[in-house]
């Protein structure tokens, strides 16, 4: 057992956990933030994608003890404290970019990262960047629409 302190969405969570506790289980079962999902257990599907110090990671592939003292952002961080939706959230809703929604948190966190990391991405580049996130429902087209739109909104806001 090890005591870890992990900052999630700006809030500190401290717990005495088994060393083998996966980060995704820490987020879901210890911090009780249920927006991050488990889809494949093997790092393929991306449903558990969160940001670790602003970089996307698959939280089923990391032990919680590995990120002791680090900072994590999950889907719950996107909405403003005033209840205002983020541009990623807005764009996904606008474009019907989800059906069952189980993969959506992972896609939103990837999008949050991509639109800040790259000033411009073609549809083909978006598809390539999203290949580590599976969606079994949409066929991806409306997700690509949403990412493009989110990028535009982000760039418009900056300029």
């Amino acid at each position: 057992m090890t005591v870890v302190n992990i900052k999630i969405n700006g809030k500190k969570y401290s717990d005495d956990i088994e060393d083998r506790t996966l980060l995704v289980h820490f987020i879901r079962d210890h911090a009780r933030l249920r927006g991050t999902h488990i889809g494949c257990d093997t790092g393929h599907c991306g449903a558990c994608t969160v940001l670790l110090n602003d970089r996307p990671v698959k939280s089923c592939q990391i032990l919680a003890v590995q990120v002791d003292g680090e900072s994590i952002e999950t889907v719950e961080s996107l909405e403003g404290s005033d209840g205002k939706l983020s541009i990623e959230q807005e764009a996904f809703r606008e474009h019907f970019a989800m059906q069952c929604g189980y993969c959506t948190s992972g896609f939103l966190m990837m999008t949050h990262h991509l639109i800040r990391e790259y000033p411009e991405l073609s549809r083909e580049e978006i598809r390539e960047k999203l290949h580590g996130n599976y969606c079994m429902c949409t066929g991806y087209q409306q997700i690509v629409d949403a990412v493009q739109d989110a990028q535009k909104r982000h760039n418009d806001k900056k300029s």
Binding site: H37, E79, R93, F96, G101, T104
Partner: peptide
């Protein structure tokens, strides 16, 4: 093409699936 109401909970990470 009315925007989906379901999405308001999904995009906030409040899907409320059985495991939640």
């Amino acid at each position: 093409a009315v925007r989906r109401l379901e999405d308001l909970r999904i995009i906030r990470g409040k899907g409320g699936y059985t495991d939640d």
